[in-house]
Design a protein around this nucleic acid. Structure first.
Length: 354
DNA sequence: AAGATCTGCAACCGCATACCA
DNA sequence: ATGGTATGCGGTTGCAGATCT
């Protein structure tokens, strides 16, 4: 027996986005709104709330007051009946969300502290997008708040610093660019086209434009380019890099303005708070190192393992601190421009790489 | 000054799952 | 074991204010 719901403007929500008639299972996967003119429910199964006439959108202070007052007296829970009992024209789900994400008295509001941000990044490197799990370790912060902060601040910053926010590993396009530029610009020979073509598929086309521009600069004024590269230890003019397979990670570090030593043996992974505050850091992949892989739970890992990781692959995420701590300045264009301190050609927006 | 674009965040949506009858 | 309901979770959307052109 079927009960036809009379509303034609309501929509199926939450747990009721799927239903059964006999042995047939119906699922509404894509449509957010579902006209009920043709929708039938099995008798006895009703939506969690009748959306007809229920308010959506931003909460008013009056609604907040009603909800808070009700919960203070009766406690949170039983969200299905709560709106009616509290005199609210809202869905229970909406009430729960408003309470847990905004009205709860133990919510800490305001900017995230440096320590909180560090904690989020470290936990995300382990837990991935398990926002509720991360929130559970940050008292006073909600999963929604952390998720928003990650998407609007931390994620962008990691991207700009050449770190894949999914894997917490250096991004391939940055590594390849560093490799190409290190090889080609430092070389006294003409442009190694095959190297460029070999990496082309991995690169954002605009990165190629940038590389080409730098190549042109080199041809026009090679001494200036080489002088600057040497000044910034981007390459060793006495032993020019000829093989792009040897990734000059040091160059990348320097390129991002993070001030790493050119001595690879001295590279370490700062973990102390003072290092966090003074040095941006990224894992140092070296092709020749015997450093453990991320799966070892160690902060160090080889470049091979990085290269084998798809840029947007699901995260194994058992490596900790495999991220670059950003510099406190927000404008990472600066860090990229510091690659060579050359003027970026007009019309080439570095943000497009991000 | 005004329109366009960007940004941050609250709220929504659909799915998964725990719980209970 | 099965089905119905409640709740939790993560992804996405939409809006308001800020910034840019």
């Amino acid at each position: 027996m079927l009960a036809r719901l009379v509303s034609n403007s309501s929509y199926i929500d939450g747990a009721h986005s799927s239903f059964r008639i006999g042995d047939l299972h119906f699922s509404i996967a894509s449509a957010s709104y579902f006209t009920l003119e043709t929708c039938f429910y099995p008798m006895g199964r009703t939506p969690c709330c009748d959306k007809n006439g229920l308010k959506k959108g931003p909460w008013t202070p009056e609604e907040d007051l009603k909800l808070t007052s009700y919960i203070q007296i009766h406690g949170a829970g039983n969200w299905r009946t709560l709106p009616k009992n509290a005199g609210l024209q809202r869905c229970g789900k909406s009430c729960r969300l408003r309470w847990t994400n905004y009205l709860r008295p133990d919510i800490k509001r305001g900017r995230f502290s440096f320590e909180e941000e560090e904690t989020i990044i470290q936990l995300h490197s382990i837990l991935g997008n398990k926002w509720s799990a991360i929130a559970g370790r940050l008292p006073g912060r909600t999963d929604n708040e952390i998720k928003n902060y990650w998407n609007t601040h931390i994620r962008k910053r990691l991207l700009r610093n050449g770190i894949d926010p999914v894997t917490h590993a250096p991004r391939l396009d940055f590594l390849e660019l560093s490799s190409i530029l290190g090889s080609t610009l430092c070389s006294q020979s003409v442009l190694n086209v095959s190297n460029l073509l070999g990496a082309q598929a991995l690169l954002n086309p605009q990165l190629l434009i940038l590389a080409n521009t730098l190549m042109s600069l080199k041809q026009e004024n090679p001494e200036l380019v080489l002088q600057y590269l040497n000044q910034n230890q981007l390459c060793n003019s006495q032993a020019p890099i000829q093989d792009t397979s040897m990734i000059n990670q040091t160059g990348l570090m320097q390129a991002t303005g993070q001030g790493f030593s050119s001595d690879m043996t001295n590279l370490s992974y700062p973990n102390s708070q003072e290092n966090l505050t003074t040095n941006a850091f990224v894992p140092i992949p070296t092709k020749t190192s015997n450093l453990p892989s991320p799966q070892d739970g160690n902060q160090n890992y080889s470049f091979d393992s990085v290269k084998s990781t798809p840029i947007s692959s699901p995260t194994p995420l058992h490596s900790s601190s495999t991220y670059m701590n950003s510099c406190s300045t927000n404008d990472e264009i600066e860090s990229f421009n510091s690659l060579f301190k050359f003027e970026i050609p007009e019309g080439l927006d570095i943000n497009d790489f991000m």
